[in-house]
Nucleic acid binder design. Structure first.
Length: 593
RNA sequence: CGGGGUGUAGCUCAGCCUGGCAGAGCGCUGCGUUUGGGACGCAGAGGCCCACAGUUCAAAUCUGUGCACCCCGACCA
C-alpha cells in the first residue's frame, strides 16, 4: 500500500498559503487537490477476489471499496469519475429534449402489484415493510413510478410527447453480483421514459433516445454497438442494447460481417440449414441400443444430425412442455420462454421426466399426449426425421409432422450459433462477447394501461399513452471505460471522464525553484479551469510515477530540478507515453490540445 | 438454486497432509539516510486463524454444520 497523505504538512503547505487568492468564481478546477490530503489508498497488488481488469484496477487505484457482495463505497476519486459520467449523460439527455425528475427509491408494493411485476420480478425485488407492516420494495427500475408521475401531468394529446428521466439508485437482489462494478445489487441507473400519443411518434422519441445514447457512449470513450435485443422482464416490443464488445462480457452477440446485422444471442435470427429433400416414407422402428444423444444416433444410423428430431423437456411455470427441434439445432430458451409467455422456464428434472412417462434419449412427440408440444419450424418442415420411439433403446425412422405427430405450437425457438447463416444476407454469423451498457425499449401501453396513463385525443377519445423506456448503468459504464482504456500500468482515462485533467508530480519539494514552479503552475491551471491533482507527498519519485500511471489522469506534469534545468516542466501523455519538456506557460495550452 | 474454489495481519499469501509458541513480503508508526520508475537502516504496532459444535491432554491444522466471498451456469444496466 502506498501512503497518499501524511500527518506532517507537506512542503507545499509549509511554503504556500492554502488556496491561493483567486478572483473568479469557483469552477471545476478550483481548488486543486493535494495528494497529501486526499483520501486515497492505492494498492500494489489487487485483492485476490478480482479477476476482471476493471475490477482489479478499481481496487488498486482505490476508486471504490466493497462493502458486501454487489455493494461498493466510492472514494473521492472514484466518485468524481461517476459524477463526470453522469454529467455527460445529463447533458446529452437534456440536449435530446428529455426532462430530469427525481423519484423515490422506496415504492409501495401495491404499485408493483398493479402491473403484475411484483410477482414477475420475483426474488430480484428487495422487499421490506414499514412500522405499520405496509409492504414496500426498493425500486429495481421505475416504469411504474414514472408512469404514476406522468399520469398526474398528462391529460391531453397537447401534453405529449414528453420524455422524463432520472439518475437514481436501483436495488436488485441479483442471484449473482459479479465483476466488481459490472453487476451490482445497488447501482445507479439513468432511466428515461417517453410518453407518446401513438406508436408512430414513439418511433421519434425512441430515435431521439437512441441518438442521445450514441453521443453519450462516444463522449465517454466507450465503443459500443447497438444490437437487436430481447425485451426480457421489462416487457415491450422493439428493443436494442448498446453492447461494449469485450472478451470478458457476459452476453453473447451475433454479428453479420456481410450486412451488419447484430443481435443479442437471445434474440438472434438466422437461416436454418436446409432439410434433406425426401419423399415421405413409411415409419419404421429400429433398435438403437445404448444410444442417447443426437451425435451417437447420427453416427449409429449413418445419417446427418439434420435428419433427426431432437426432443427436450422443460417446465414452464410449473407445467411440463415437450419441445421438438431438428437435431442439428439447439433450443433458444429465451425464445421458448417468450413463445410460452412463461415467467419461469427450467429444464424438467429427472423425476418429473419419469413421472411424465418420457424416455430421455429416446423420446419423441409420436404418440405423445397430455403435454404441450412446442416445435421449431425446422422439425415440422423436414421429412423423414429419425425420432425417439419412447422406448429405451429404440428409435423411429421416417417420422413426419402431420402424419405421425402434431405440434400444439410451432414457433421460432432455435438458437443462433457461430457460423449459422445470416437471416438477411446468408453470410456466416460471428459471435462475440459483450457487456450491456444501455438498453432501449418500445414498451407500448403495458404500463400506461394498468397504472392509468391516459390522454384525450383530438376527437376527445380517451387513449392509453404509448411508452418507451431507456436505461444506462452508470457504474457499469465506469467499469467498461476502464476495460476499454487501460494498460499493464493502470487506467488511461478518456479526458471526458478523468477524475482530474492534470496530475502534477512534484519532486524535490525541498528546493525553492520547485516550490515556486509548482505554485505558479497550480495557479495557471486553476485559472484555466482545469482540475488538478498535485502529488506533494513525501514519497520517492518511483512511487509517485507508479501511482500516476495507475490513476491514469490524461496528463502528467513533472516539476523537478532536472526538468527545470532543461528549461521547463516535463509533460507526459498517459495514453501515448510521449514525454517532452515544455515551458511553464505552455502547459495549459498543451493540455487543452 | 446447481457446480467449482477460497476464508490466517490493511493487501498478497505460507503454515493445515503429519494437531504442540501465530509466520513472511508489501503496507502502517517513530527516528535517520534517501528522492526520475513502487529505495535503505534501526526500532515498533498490528491477529476472535470466518462462526458454531464436536474429537483430543492439546485444534489455524482433524470431523460436522452454518456463514461470507470469488468463479462457471439460469437474470439484468
Amino acid at each position: 500500500m502506498t501512503p497518499t497523505r501524511s500527518k506532517r504538512p507537506s512542503a507545499l503547505d509549509r511554503n504556500l498559503q492554502p488556496a491561493a487568492p483567486f478572483n473568479s468564481p469557483p469552477e471545476r478546477g478550483y481548488p486543486p487537490m493535494r495528494m497529501s490530503k486526499l483520501l486515497l489508498k492505492t494498492l500494489r497488488e489487487a485483492p485476490s477476489e478480482a479477476e476482471l481488469a476493471s475490477h482489479k484496477l478499481i481496487l488498486r487505484a482505490g476508486l471504490a471499496a466493497p462493502l458486501a457482495a454487489g455493494l461498493y463505497c466510492f472514494t473521492p476519486v472514484g466518485w468524481r469519475v461517476i459524477r463526470r459520467i453522469e454529467a455527460i449523460i445529463r447533458e446529452e439527455m437534456d440536449r435530446s429534449g428529455a426532462q430530469e425528475v427525481h423519484l423515490p427509491a422506496l415504492h409501495p408494493i401495491e404499485t408493483w402489484e398493479q402491473t403484475g411485476r411484483a410477482e414477475a420480478m420475483g426474488q430480484t425485488l428487495f422487499r421490506l415493510a414499514d412500522r405499520k407492516e405496509r409492504g414496500f420494495v426498493l425500486g429495481p427500475t421505475h416504469e411504474e413510478v414514472m408512469a404514476f408521475l406522468a399520469a398526474r401531468a398528462i391529460q391531453s394529446y397537447r401534453d405529449l410527447p414528453v420524455t422524463l428521466y432520472q439518475i437514481q439508485t436501483k436495488f436488485r437482489d441479483e442471484p449473482r453480483p459479479r465483476g466488481g462494478l459490472v453487476r451490482l445489487r445497488e447501482f445507479t441507473m439513468k432511466d428515461a421514459y417517453s410518453f407518446d400519443t401513438g406508436w408512430d411518434t414513439l418511433d421519434a422519441s425512441y430515435d431521439a433516445a437512441f441518438a442521445a445514447y450514441q453521443r453519450i457512449f462516444e463522449r465517454a470513450g466507450l465503443p459500443v454497438i447497438p444490437v437487436a435485443a430481447d425485451s426480457g422482464a421489462i416487457g415491450g416490443k422493439d428493443s436494442q442494447e448498446f453492447i461494449f464488445l469485450t472478451e470478458d462480457g457476459e452476453d453473447e452477440v451475433l454479428l453479420c460481417p456481410g450486412c451488419g446485422y447484430a443481435a443479442n444471442g437471445e434474440k438472434a435470427d438466422f437461416r436454418r440449414p436446409p432439410a434433406l429433400e425426401a419423399v415421405p416414407a413409411a415409419m419404421e422402428k429400429v433398435a438403437t441400443p445404448g444410444i442417447k444423444t443426437i451425435p451417437d444416433l447420427a453416427a449409429f444410423l449413418k445419417v446427418e444430425p439434420r435428419q433427426t428430431n431432437k426432443a427436450v423437456f422443460y417446465r414452464a411455470d410449473g407445467k411440463p412442455v415437450f419441445v421438438c427441434i431438428r437435431g442439428d439445432l439447439d433450443v433458444n430458451e429465451i425464445k421458448l420462454k417468450n413463445t410460452l409467455k412463461a415467467r419461469d422456464l427450467d429444464p424438467l428434472d429427472e423425476a418429473a421426466v419419469r413421472a411424465a412417462g418420457l424416455v430421455a434419449g429416446s423420446a419423441s412427440a409420436v404418440g405423445l399426449s397430455g403435454m404441450l408440444i412446442v416445435a421449431d419450424p425446422s422439425a415440422v418442415e423436414a421429412t423423414n426425421l429419425v425420432a425417439g420411439a419412447n422406448e429405451d433403446g429404440f428409435h423411429l425412422l421416417n417420422t413426419n409432422h402431420g402424419r405421425d405427430w402434431k405440434a400444439d405450437v410451432v414457433a421460432d425457438i432455435a438458437l443462433a450459433r457461430r457460423g449459422d447463416a445470416c437471416a438477411t444476407c446468408g453470410t456466416a454469423l460471428e459471435t462475440r462477447h459483450g457487456m450491456e451498457m444501455g438498453h432501449v425499449f418500445k414498451l407500448g401501453t403495458i404500463y400506461s394501461e394498468p397504472i392509468g396513463v391516459y390522454y384525450l385525443d383530438e376527437a376527445g377519445e380517451r387513449r392509453p399513452v404509448v411508452m418507451g423506456s431507456y436505461g444506462i448503468g452508470v457504474e457499469r459504464m465506469l467499469a467498461a471505460i476502464i476495460e476499454a482504456n487501460h494498460d499493464s500500468n493502470g487506467i488511461i482515462w478518456p479526458a471526458s471522464v478523468a477524475p482530474y485533467d492534470v496530475h502534477v508530480v512534484a519532486l524535490n519539494l525541498d528546493q525553492a525553484a520547485v516550490l515556486d514552479a509548482v505554485a505558479a503552475l497550480e495557479l495557471s491551471l486553476a485559472e484555466a479551469g482545469l482540475s488538478v491533482l498535485i502529488d506533494d507527498r513525501d514519497e520517492s519519485a518511483g512511487i509517485k510515477f507508479k501511482d500516476a500511471d495507475l490513476l491514469g489522469i490524461p496528463y502528467r506534469v513533472t516539476v523537478s530540478p532536472r526538468a527545470l534545468d532543461r528549461g521547463g516542466l516535463e509533460l507526459r501523455n498517459r495514453r501515448t507515453g510521449e514525454t517532452e519538456i515544455v515551458a511553464a506557460g505552455e502547459v495549459v495550452t498543451r493540455v487543452r490540445g
